[in-house]
Design a protein around this nucleic acid. Structure first.
Length: 652
RNA sequence: GCGCCUGUAGCUCAGAUGGACAGAGCUACGGACUUCUAAUCCGUGGGUCGGGGGUUCGAAUCCCUCCAGGCGCGCCA
């Protein structure tokens, strides 16, 4: 609010886009400053001090909002002192009045952002690495929605991939009774024990299958058969696989719902195949001249997108070109992904059929693509046809994602290619200690151990949620209600998974992840609940302050100013993140906001020997001001927590 | 071999567009609860920002190079 006002005036005066701001070394110089004159000195061929002097003169005439005083310091810094009283007069009543809509941008009708996240293979339980994906995607969706975009969140279900095939094969043929052609699968389903979650059962089964194939290669032949039966879509095993995947998807949805993560649509790969997306894409690719059929070389007999031909590497000759259709005629994952990306933008003349999956715990309907669904044009809502597409996928898939985007570009869909965003993040690994706790083999040198569904190595998401909940209960100094413990666990986990930058690999360590003090989601919840408690106590004592502009003290104390400053940075922070898509910038802000409040709470009068609780203040004007500031904090903190998908507890 | 990412305090990490003496949490040590919530707060200690060059009035930030680590370069997904 403050800096933006100054920046606006400076931009007009200087005809520049970028106005950098920073904090001066001494508080006496100003509340913030800019080194813009230093960087302009060269191009204007004048001394920075001269430019600064002139600018200050001009700025005094324009009077940017909330600026009390300006000065310059050597070698040419512009320093600004904020009129904190003036800011308080503007911001506090506005927060109180606007509540959850405080600083919310107008909706940008017509701008639709499609976000795909989670997309876990439906053949085993989720682990904490998958959670990072879901939490990132969900948070970005919330932030973009707040910024006025129309959003559609989708979870892609790869139900025809090898991973599902292997679990199906394992369930049918690893242990007796084995599947007999024509049987109704009831005996097969009974193999899953009733006292264990189905996704956990499959987690172990999948890992076991990997081991068993080494001893018993005939299983690989079985796998091959099952693969074709599922791909064909007609054999009863295809139906069985779909049912298995469906059960796992339910488990996944149940898992992420514990962290308040919901979707609009489930997209099944089997439907992409069944609805002929690939055939349409294949025609389009050929029509646009994007594809090449190889008649010689290592890719002989394949349809490829050229990306640099054949090169020599230390491992021999390799092709940089991307194969979309194998020599046996089958389509690769990247091929299907291009088709899917085209659909997301509404560039494909094919569509899914849709039906309702069910109501989610947030009260919203979840839709799914389905063979027996309705055509999209008969629905009240329209899926796909996005202006921008964000795919939340870990960084290991950067190359194939790039291929998808460049293929769109080669097809002439330049605009759509530019609006295709791969939100890449580093994976979650395990610390040596965590790996040891999980019973993984360590080689004693590595700093991080990759989780692996194949070997069954990893911290399962639901286990982790339960552990954090247990820890929260242990660490509390009073008994916690069940719902409060769950809410705190959810907040702690989301915060932990969001606070790292996208490029930062999370080396998961139980001690670190289970922390309940300091820079954690618990701290944020505690600050919010504390504000609620103050307001509740005040109400109980019949103190219900009515805001008046003349209640603003002069001068304000340092901690009051710190809190006002944090409140004023809310909107610019959220707007910035809608561009950078970096959720860690929101946790950073949230922690700063909570810290500012806690400091204000602990030391409202930092210079005084005694700190008087707000509800005991004799000065009713001051009491009104401080309680209003508490209320304003509680609202903005609540809004911030909502954007991160974290609960807003009124008491802990 | 080529490409991408990372290296900041004992540990885990922030430092968008280059700005004034580099920040936080944890840990260690010393303090503060008859009080609006101590899952908190205050204080102390702790750093040649991987090394070396360069650009610049100014570099953790940009360029080059070297070192160390991770990932990718499948007719897997």
């Amino acid at each position: 609010m403050i800096r933006e006002g100054v920046a606006e005036v400076l931009k007009k005066l200087l005809d520049t886009d970028d106005i950098p701001f920073n904090i001066p070394p001494q508080r006496e110089l100003g509340d913030f400053s800019s080194a813009i004159c230093l960087s302009l000195a060269k191009q204007k061929k004048r001394s920075p001090m001269k430019i600064a002097q002139e600018l200050v003169e001009l700025l005094r005439l324009r009077r940017p909002a909330y600026i009390q005083e300006m000065n310059i310091s050597s070698p040419g810094y512009l320093n600004f002192k904020v009129d904190w009283g003036g800011l308080a007069k503007e911001i506090i009543p506005r927060v109180l009045k606007e509540g959850e809509f405080f600083e919310k941008p107008d909706s940008r009708l017509g701008e639709k952002v499609f976000i795909e996240h989670t997309s876990v293979n439906p053949n085993k339980a989720m682990h904490i690495g998958h959670l990072r994906n879901s939490v990132l995607g969900d948070t970005i969706a919330r932030i973009l929605k707040w910024n006025g975009f129309s959003i559609e969140v989708c979870n892609y279900i790869d139900d025809t991939g090898l991973q599902v095939v292997e679990v199906v094969t394992a369930l049918l043929y690893l242990d007796p009774p084995y599947y007999q052609e024509g049987s109704d699968f009831s005996e097969i389903w009974e193999k899953a024990p009733a006292d264990q979650p189905f996704d956990y059962f499959c987690w172990e089964l999948y890992a076991r299958f990997q081991n068993e194939t080494e001893k018993n290669p005939s299983l690989l032949a079985k796998r091959e058969t099952v693969l074709h039966q599922i791909e064909g879509g007609i054999h009863p095993i295809a139906g069985f696989a779909k049912e298995l995947a469906t059960r796992i998807v339910r488990s996944h949805l149940d898992t992420v719902a514990q962290l308040s993560i919901f979707y609009h649509l489930l997209n099944w790969e089997s439907d992409i195949i069944a609805r002929g997306f690939w055939e349409a894409t294949f025609e389009l690719l050929k029509e646009k001249g994007t594809l090449r059929f190889e008649t010689e070389g290592p890719n002989e007999g394949c349809w490829v997108v050229p990306f640099g031909g054949v090169v020599e590497t230390s491992e021999g000759m390799k092709s940089l070109d991307k194969i979309l259709v194998r020599s046996n005629g089958s389509v690769t994952y990247t091929g299907k992904d291009i088709a899917y990306q085209l659909w997301k933008f509404g560039l494909l003349k094919k569509d899914f059929l849709y039906k309702r999956w069910g109501l989610q715990t947030d009260g919203e309907m979840l839709w799914t693509t389905a063979r027996d669904g309705e055509p999209g044009d008969r629905l009240s809502k329209k899926f796909g046809h996005a202006d921008r597409v964000i795919n939340v996928i870990d960084t290991r898939q950067s190359y194939p994602q790039q291929v998808v985007v460049e293929s769109l570009r080669k097809m002439g869909f330049e605009k759509e290619a530019n609006q295709s965003i791969h939100l890449a993040y580093e994976v979650v690994n395990l610390s040596p200690l965590s790996a040891r706790i999980l019973g993984m083999e360590e080689n004693g040198e590595k700093k991080a151990y990759a989780m692996s569904g194949r070997s069954g190595a990893g911290v399962k998401a639901k286990d982790f949620i339960q552990m954090v909940k247990q820890k929260v209960i242990e660490k509390a100094d009073h008994p916690l209600e069940e719902s409060v413990a769950s809410a705190l666990a959810s907040a702690a986990i989301r915060y932990y998974l969001l606070k790292f930058t996208l490029e930062s690999q999370i080396v998961f360590d139980f001690d670190e992840a289970l922390k309940t003090t300091g820079d954690t989601g618990i701290y944020l919840e505690y600050a919010h609940a504390r504000a609620c408690s103050i307001l509740r106590k005040a109400k109980e004592q019949k103190i219900e302050p009515e805001w008046r502009d003349d209640c603003i003290p002069d001068p304000l104390t340092g901690t009051e100013i710190g809190l006002l400053d944090a409140l004023s940075r809310f909107s610019s922070t959220v707007i910035k993140i809608s561009k950078t898509l970096r959720a860690s910038q929101l946790t950073e802000y949230a922690f700063d906001l909570a810290t500012s409040f806690t400091h204000f709470y602990e030391h409202p009068d930092p210079e005084a020997d005694v700190q008087t609780p707000f509800i005991h203040l004799q000065d009713k004007g001051l009491q009104t001001f401080r309680l209003s500031l508490v209320k304003a904090f509680q609202i903005v903190m609540g809004n911030t927590l909502n954007l991160m998908g974290m609960p807003t507890l009124e008491r802990i």
